[in-house]
Simulated assay, not measured.
Amino acid sequence: MRVVGSGAWAEECPIGDDGGREAHDGAGAAPAESLHPLDFAAKPLVLDRLRVQAGAFFDLIRPDRVWEEPTAAGHWEVRDLAAQMVAVTTRHLACLTAPASTRHVELPRLEGHARRTDEAVMAARTVSRVDTLAALGDRFAVVTALLDSLDETMWTRPVVAHPVFGRVPGVFCAAHLILASTVYAWDIREGRRQRHAVSADAADMVSPFLPKIWQLTLKAAPARPIRVGVQVSGRNGAGYLVHVDRADGFRCTMGDAWSAPTVLEFDPGSFLLTVYGRINGGCDYGDLTQARRFRNLFFRI
C-alpha cells in the first residue's frame, strides 16, 4: 500500500493490478492510453483534459455581460474567479520555472489561505476585464508549454516546490489547473442555477490528488482517533484507509476501504466537490457518527 498523506508526496502511485491499462484482445489491437496522471505516458491525455477544462472556463468568463454576475463561490463574482485563476496560473508558472529540487520542504498548512486569497481577489477588482483576460490567456499559454516540455522525472517525481502545496511532481501543476478550472466553472453554472454537472473525465483524472487536499485542509487532529475507509469509483478510482489522530495527524494508505468500520463512498465528481467544500456528497456506511466527525475535520477552500 502507498502512503498518500504523510508529509511528502509519494514517489509511486499504484494504479491497479493491470498497471492502469485496459486489456485488449485481438491481433493488432492498439494498447490503451494510460489514464493515471502520474504515469508519464498519460501526459498528452492530461494536457488535453487541461485544455478542454480551461477552455470551457474561459468561454464562461469571456462575455462582457457576465463579468459581475454572482457565483456559488460566496460573495465572489465571475471577475473574482477570473482573477483567482490568474493567481493560480501565476503560482504554477513560478514553480515550474524554478530549479528542480529534491530537498525537504515543510508541508504548508492552509489555515488563513481563504482569507489571504479573498483579500488578493478583492484587490484585483481594480484590474480591467480586458487586462485580466489577457493576463490569463498569456500565462496559461506559457504554463501549458512548460508542462508539455517536462521530462519523466519532472512529471512524476516531487521535485517542484509549490508555495501552497509544498514539494510536488510537475503533473500536480496540470492537475491543479484542471481542478481549479472545473470547480470555478461549477461555481459559475451553479450561480446561474443551471442544471449541470462536472466533467467525468476531468474529475476522474484528478481524483488521485484529492486525499492530499484533505490532508492540507485538516483543521486539527481530533482528541479521539478516527478511522474511515474512502471508496472512490471511476477509472482512477481507488480504496483508501484514512486514520487521523493527534500523534500522527492525517495518514492515508491505499487499501480495502470496506475493511474499515465506517466507509465514505464517492463517484469522482462528488469526491471533488466534497473535498473542495462545494457540496456534502457521497454516501456513508457503518458508524454514521464517525463519518460526520470525519467530514467536519476539514476547512473549506
Rank of each mutant, 00 (worst) to 15 (best):
E190N: 14
E190G: 04
G191N: 11
G191F: 13
R192G: 06
R192T: 06
R193K: 15
R193W: 12
R193A: 15
Q194R: 04
R195A: 01
H196N: 02
H196I: 09
A197N: 03
A197V: 08
A197F: 08
S199M: 04
S199E: 03
A200C: 02
A200M: 04
A200I: 06
D201A: 11
D201M: 10
A202M: 02
A203E: 02
A203C: 05
D204V: 03
D204H: 02
M205Y: 09
M205A: 08
M205K: 04
M205G: 02
V206H: 10
V206R: 12
V206L: 12
V206P: 03
S207Q: 11
S207H: 07
P208Q: 05
P208C: 03
P208A: 04
L210N: 02
L210P: 00
L210G: 00
P211L: 07
K212E: 12
K212A: 12
K212H: 15
I213Q: 13
W214R: 15
W214P: 00
W214V: 03
Q215I: 06
Q215Y: 14
Q215V: 05
L216K: 05
L216A: 09
L216I: 09
T217Q: 12
T217K: 10
T217W: 08
T217F: 07
L218D: 09
L218H: 10
K219L: 15
K219V: 15
K219N: 14
A220S: 10
A220T: 09
P222M: 06
P222D: 08
A223R: 11
R224D: 15
R224G: 07
P225G: 04
P225Y: 08
P225S: 05
I226T: 13
I226K: 13
I226L: 14
R227C: 14
R227W: 14
V228T: 09
V228G: 02
V228S: 07
G229V: 11
G229K: 11
V230S: 08
V230T: 14
Q231H: 12
Q231A: 10
V232C: 01
S233T: 03
S233G: 02
S233P: 01
S233F: 01
R235D: 03
G237T: 00
G237V: 00
G237K: 00
G237W: 00
A238Q: 13
A238V: 10
G239I: 07
G239V: 05
Y240E: 07
Y240W: 14
L241C: 13
L241N: 12
V242N: 13
V242R: 14
V242S: 13
H243R: 12
H243M: 03
H243Y: 12
H243D: 08
H243P: 04
